[in-house]
Nucleic acid binder design. Structure first.
Lengths: 111, 111
DNA sequence: TTGACATGCAAGTAATAACTTGCCTAATAT
DNA sequence: ATATTAGGCAAGTTATTACTTGCATGTCAA
């Protein structure tokens, strides 16, 4: 069963694979990489990497821009925030929940 | 490939399935439930639920206590904190990273 | 002390996910 | 112009995961 209905599901599924997590780490270390660049770090075929990147893109964790014959990949950390709100903050002890609220308030005044 | 080597992998794999996330939600709503209790909410065989709970237990998200012929299930939110540190805080903008440090400092003095 | 209840074990099936291979198109550099 | 480089598409294969069924064991209540 396990139909990937909502974004939450795509997101967790995207994070469930170590190769995809490595890709996120690579983009975190240096943004705007090409497909070939990323392939050099992964020990699998180019298509394998492409398919992982497609999943990351479906989960909105990676955005891409075509530049000539190259495709540049950028990290988008926003969905991770959603995980935090739904799965970390919610399950924390009340004390930490209070801190989460504080954090959000600070974000609003700061931005 | 995708060998489940470390705890991180078990954790993300555990969270990747909607039924398992539902189980966590159920335990969050009310802790110490029996297997049969949890089964009533899941629309699959008892064994299916057992296997999901086994994975959650392997990821240390659920702990169990045997009580007579019943098995009680308890939620352990600690591993979720690890995800936060490694995957949320790390990928946040520097401003939010600073807040994460603050949070940890507060935790130490508070506990 | 027996019958119903709560759960465990093991093997099998079906669905999904990860990965590969081969060929195709478009951009660039010489 | 043409060879090379970057990437896309589509099928097929293998591995993993989700789930089921049938039977076994321990616990409790009457």
């Amino acid at each position: 069963m396990a139909e990937p209905i909502d974004d939450t599901d795509l997101l967790f599924k995207a994070l469930a694979d170590p190769s995809r997590r490595k890709l996120l780490d690579l983009l975190h270390a240096e943004d705007g990489r090409t497909l070939n660049d990323l392939c050099e770090h992964l020990d699998m075929s180019r298509q394998g990497v492409t398919q992982h990147l497609d999943l990351l893109e479906a989960a909105h964790l990676v955005a891409t821009v075509r530049s000539g014959r190259e495709k540049l990949h950028y990290l988008n950390p926003v969905p991770l925030q959603a995980i935090y709100e739904r799965w970390i903050a919610k399950f924390e002890k009340p004390r930490l929940k209070a801190l989460s609220k504080l954090k959000r308030r600070l974000e609003q005044t700061d931005d």
